[in-house]
Design a protein around this nucleic acid. Sequence first.
DNA 1: TGAGCGATGTGATTCAATTCACAATGTGTA
DNA 2: TACACATTGTGAATTGAATCACATCGCTCA
Lengths: 203, 203
Amino acid sequence: MEKTIGRMSLYRRLLLDIEKRGASHVYSHELARVAGIGAAQVRRDLMTMGFSGSPSKGYHVADLIGHIGTAIDPPEQQRVALVGVGNLGRAILAYFHGRRPKLAIVAAFDDDSAKVDKVVHGCRCHPLRAMSEIVPALDITVGIITVPAESAQDIADRLVNLDIKGILNFAPAALRVPPGVFVDTMDITTALEKVAYFARKGR
Amino acid sequence: MEKTIGRMSLYRRLLLDIEKRGASHVYSHELARVAGIGAAQVRRDLMTMGFSGSPSKGYHVADLIGHIGTAIDPPEQQRVALVGVGNLGRAILAYFHGRRPKLAIVAAFDDDSAKVDKVVHGCRCHPLRAMSEIVPALDITVGIITVPAESAQDIADRLVNLDIKGILNFAPAALRVPPGVFVDTMDITTALEKVAYFARKGR
DNA sequence: TGAGCGATGTGATTCAATTCACAATGTGTA
DNA sequence: TACACATTGTGAATTGAATCACATCGCTCA
Ligand SMILES: NC(=O)c1ccc[n+]([C@@H]2O[C@H](COP(=O)([O-])OP(=O)(O)OC[C@H]3O[C@@H](n4cnc5c(N)ncnc54)[C@H](O)[C@@H]3O)[C@@H](O)[C@H]2O)c1
Ligand SMILES: NC(=O)c1ccc[n+]([C@@H]2O[C@H](COP(=O)([O-])OP(=O)(O)OC[C@H]3O[C@@H](n4cnc5c(N)ncnc54)[C@H](O)[C@@H]3O)[C@@H](O)[C@H]2O)c1
């Protein structure tokens, strides 16, 4: 069901578009077309999440958007820390700044003294050593790791010790975390190599 | 088998580390441990790719690195174009600059005249209109899309028309491409929402 | 030399995700 | 009213990935 959750976020974006175009209902096959997947998949996902439509009108767009929100959005603001204010870290800070009130990056950390204490895209960059104070104080539950691979496990361990429950990791390293902590690793290099491979070999 | 190809890139990085530490052989369970997966998975992957080890010594590290290279690396340089020199695009250009001689980002494109004709991390940023000339001239086969979602399908269409065979897409949009073109979409927002969701709900 | 150990390679199995296929249902039409 | 149609909801079938389980082999050591 992890896959389904991932697609909910996509569905919502598409539904907001559809709503903007003035449609009040969508059929599974319409949503499927814009999502680039099959209609049965869409119906199955919505069923899994406990939504339902009408065989004649399809799914009510505004309703569905609301339901997805209550299903996947945090009920109150959920706070995120980013560790490693390098090129990628800054791009992420810029992108999320002010965009999601319910899911906000509220602190950044780096061990490079040239970056510490600067405000980057609306987010203060703290020294690494301040983590153990700031993370609990702000009740941060999610971490984004954008440090070099060698440091990634160390940072993950610290975050876990500070009771963080989810990590989005961009370092090309397989993180070991205790059960109860959810990790998703986005390995851009591997993704590019895979695309290059299939661009050459097909399929 | 797409998943296996993805892991090969990871295995190689880990093997290079292991080699650096002076070990000449690895057992499947050792590689599995550092990769964060099961030993059977590792053996299955290596088998799928046609590699084999010895029951007594395990897999020969240097050999394996070489074999993975011939299996997944381009035999000669494969060239990549990046479209959308924004925050994320620049981070990617910085990261790959000079890192992979065999897989090089050799051209960038943007429609913002303030960016055009500047050299960003060793890569010249061309006006969008130059794409139809430069992509064939440099024999570029892979595209990276880092433009806003509204423009992503348009850029994908152009790239496909210029005979590109693989796209790594960072825009939160499902791209429609003809068969024979491989697309991988890395949706950072969705990934973060998923992590946040499981951080709250567990599993 | 040969028994025991610890690995590989792989058929069989399990598990999860996706897709198929169709009964049930509401709608529009004559 | 009754019929034809398009769509939902969902069990069943399919596909594909991950895992199990074990026959087999090379090494070590008595
Ligand atoms: N930028 C990309 O396109 C790209 C592509 C593939 C992988 N990655 C991975 O993403 C990660 C970040 O990439 P980047 O391009 O931003 O690198 P970068 O070198 O620009 O940034 C790394 C940042 O982490 C900080 N840092 C280093 N060690 C630290 C530590 N122990 N604690 C806290 N901060 C520390 C550095 O001061 C720096 O600010 C790396 O693991 C990289 O391999 C990035
Ligand atoms: N930066 C992130 O962390 C992040 C997170 C989630 C998603 N994304 C997605 O990645 C993409 C890029 O993000 P970003 O933060 O770099 O955005 P950005 O606004 O910094 O950069 C976008 C760049 O694309 C250029 N551009 C716009 N339309 C274009 C067109 N039609 N042709 C060519 N160039 C065009 C702009 O001039 C700009 O340089 C977006 O689709 C965004 O939704 C980024």
